[in-house]
Design a protein around this nucleic acid. Structure first.
Lengths: 125, 125
DNA sequence: CCCTTCTTCAACCAAATAGTTGACAACAGT
DNA sequence: ACTGTTGTCAACTATTTGGTTGAAGAAGGG
């Protein structure tokens, strides 16, 4: 099991069903059966997804009679956002600097040759 | 295999080793063996991690003699950021509105009581 | 031409995950 | 005190994942 919080949050959101649940919970709290309704799986499976989201700190549970309403905890998103933004910014800054270097480079200095594609199967988007 | 791009990106970053690689690539391109050096796993394992990151569109590969330098593609982060921001904002907005409602609520209306969790493993009658 | 370096491919293994069914706990309403 | 509703727990299964070893592809340097 992934011990660190960031891994848990990313892993929790790597599943489309769980992302859809989060999306719907952003519109308001819901019970397990309400959440389960749109999906073609058992309510137990949904209960398991909810456990993953809870362990990741993305949702919290309360009690209302037999029901266990699910509540979205939006603050945890910040963990991810901060991580993502940090490295994206760092990388983009580096490219900007690289562009400056290239722009300032005299004509007779050849940059890295194009390195053409080999016939292999691999495809990069 | 997760078909949708968003799932692939989240899943790719759910692993601490892969996140660390991304973090280091934000500082500049690197070869596979350079990337592998700090970790206590085989170079093949690192190569597999790289494949996951590539499939997620987070990195791209080129060729330089025998080497296959790895390059961070920062734009893909936007996919996640957009998703995250959308639902966080939505949820937070909803709470703000809820706060307004609560603030405007007369004193004699009680909100839901705390209702703490109970273990309930094997209770008989 | 070998030979070494850098990297990937293939087969295999252990552990985690997402799903299932079946049982049962907690509570509400007669 | 039953009965139905809501949800969880436990055990089982199939698939995916992250790791291993061993072999092989691709390119450069004697």
């Amino acid at each position: 099991m992934a011990a660190d919080p960031l891994s848990r949050v990313f892993a929790a959101l790597a599943d489309p069903t769980r992302r859809d649940m989060v999306a719907r919970l952003a519109g308001g709290d819901a019970t397990v059966s309400e959440l389960a309704a749109p999906y073609d799986v058992t309510i137990q499976a949904v209960s398991k997804h909810l456990r993953v989201l809870t362990d990741a700190g993305l949702v919290s549970r309360t009690r209302d009679a037999q029901r266990r309403p699910v509540h979205l905890e939006a603050e945890v998103f910040d963990l991810m956002t901060k991580w993502i933004e940090r490295y994206r910014r760092e990388a983009e800054e580096r490219y900007r600097r690289l562009d400056d270097v290239l722009a300032a480079m005299p004509d007779d200095v050849e940059p890295v040759p194009p390195a053409q594609d080999r016939p292999a199967k691999e495809g990069t988007s």
